[in-house]
Write a protein that binds this DNA or RNA. Sequence first.
DNA 1: GCGTACAACTTATGCGCAAAAGGAACCGCC
DNA 2: GGCGGTTCCTTTTGCGCATAAGTTGTACGC
Lengths: 337, 337
Amino acid sequence: MITIKEIAKQLNMSTTTVSNVIHGKTGEVSDETKKKVQDFLKKVDYVPNISARNLAQNESKIIGLALKARADKYENLIMDPFVSELIGGVEETIRNAGYFMMLYISSDTSEIMRHVSTWNVDGLILFGMLNDDGIRVSERYKKPIVCIDTYSIEGLKHFTNIGLDDAKGTYDIVNYLITQGHKKIAFISDNSNGVDLARLNGFKLALSDAGIKYKNSNFLKIRPRADEIESSLEEICEKLKNFTAVFCVSDLYAVTLIAALEDRGIAVPDDISVVGFDDNMLGKLHRPALTTVHQDVKAKGVMAASTLLKQLRGEKTPNQIQLPTHLVIRDTVKKIN
Amino acid sequence: MITIKEIAKQLNMSTTTVSNVIHGKTGEVSDETKKKVQDFLKKVDYVPNISARNLAQNESKIIGLALKARADKYENLIMDPFVSELIGGVEETIRNAGYFMMLYISSDTSEIMRHVSTWNVDGLILFGMLNDDGIRVSERYKKPIVCIDTYSIEGLKHFTNIGLDDAKGTYDIVNYLITQGHKKIAFISDNSNGVDLARLNGFKLALSDAGIKYKNSNFLKIRPRADEIESSLEEICEKLKNFTAVFCVSDLYAVTLIAALEDRGIAVPDDISVVGFDDNMLGKLHRPALTTVHQDVKAKGVMAASTLLKQLRGEKTPNQIQLPTHLVIRDTVKKIN
DNA sequence: GCGTACAACTTATGCGCAAAAGGAACCGCC
DNA sequence: GGCGGTTCCTTTTGCGCATAAGTTGTACGC
């Protein structure tokens, strides 16, 4: 790889002049010299050594995307179309802004932070990483952090969060179930995070607004680990005999549940109505097509990245950004009376 | 961030001594000094500045993973679970070996290569990137490259490829269709790459071994672009009236097709049998569950990464590595006579 | 008691780049 | 004709690290 030094030598000028042309510092170099350098740069296809540039400027042009690895969660979280869409949104936005993306999958916040210091990453996007311990570690790291779907009150004090109005999205679809005559509605979640709790609040509110009492038995916990999922589904299918409809916190769970129900001869939506949350390809391609709450996951990635880029430019951003959701009515809900 | 220089100053010794301890250069530093430095390093949580290290050593510890962006392909290729599994496999392997992963999504090989030079990336994994033009560009880049699912003869001369025995996998499942009494079998593909051609060869061989003649009309082209997919499926469903079974080059296409068929009142497998290739969650969760050819995509990523790591260590690797496939019989094929 | 060998250090250099500081030539101006 | 201000350069410095080369002290063999 050719260096600035070598170019300067061949053109018989100083490295600073070459560097100035590269950085378009007009007024510091004559038009003639500028053209000479530019032509040469093109001829040799000069590419800067970013490590050297980083070292000199103390910035890296890297944005880290850290995903919490949940190997225990339904085989592998990364298999969820959710994650790929997110990555796509982040990568595109970052690249268009001249940054690079370093992807990191781990469940250890400290490990991520070491990695981030090592590379002097300019900013960080965290998905599903931030527990209270993680916050303490991240605090020491003085660069901008944007979180996705983090509901920790502690976390919000320190970092911007990109999320949804999860409660409203859930309220809307549960309310829809109620307008279709359903009163006995179950809530399925793995109970692991703030997103699910927000959705549970929306669920409860929709019930209480309709004068339906929420009981603990409405809440059905799914255990998504590969070695537990079967027995978990067995249990859930049994309990669902007391319900006419189910809200699942994700399309993945909804589609998984429908498969389990059908395997037991229980038809959706004829015997029970099932709705999800996310609106990804899983529910779209399913037959009957899944009634669900739409969220634009790619937009979440784009928003996270562009918010971070704003912070990098020194602009202020709100602590909390909520993207819209909307109800998608398809074929997994039956009107009853 | 604390530097070696600062540490050396505080401990009243030279930077070289600190550096030697960091790199475990035993025999160059006394046990006493060693312990003193190690304790201090732990105390201040020293993290090296990788840009500086890269600059000094002329290596980056970065492995680039470049994915061909096909925004035109079924909305966004990255949505396919295939891609997320692949990323997961690569990331895990690389991280365990002390490397970092830079993810790059683009359709322009030259752009990728500029990026790669800029970062002085140690090695590169390419998925779906390598046309003949790409090969020319990559040639100039003297670092190891491992390709995934690249069938270009030209490409194989230069770079290791990780793939499957696509022809055999296809042969097996088409042969299974034949044993179930099917003779009129369609082949659905978007006809875009070498993988599909290899599968077509397996398809043809299975037919001819059974004494069935392959005609051009067996080949049905799917156009996956969002604005064409509907009309494309309409066309395919019409043509499928002449067939009793279909082989699709991916589970994604198979599941998409089944949804289209059901929307038109054509039942799978009662009216027509459908099989796919990949065995991802899409087919697994589908009901009826999809009969398909299993491939381990994560293993593909792991193999690509570990092969690249071998090359980085200077070990020889074969030009072509083929991972096994196997038939997964589920519920989308009906026995006829 | 001198050369050799080795352990345990330190000093000095350079990786490629950016930018601060320094200089030379020229202009206009009172 | 000396002075400030431009324009267009070059020289120098340093980012943090790894390492080649140099230094000191000591033990050992003969």
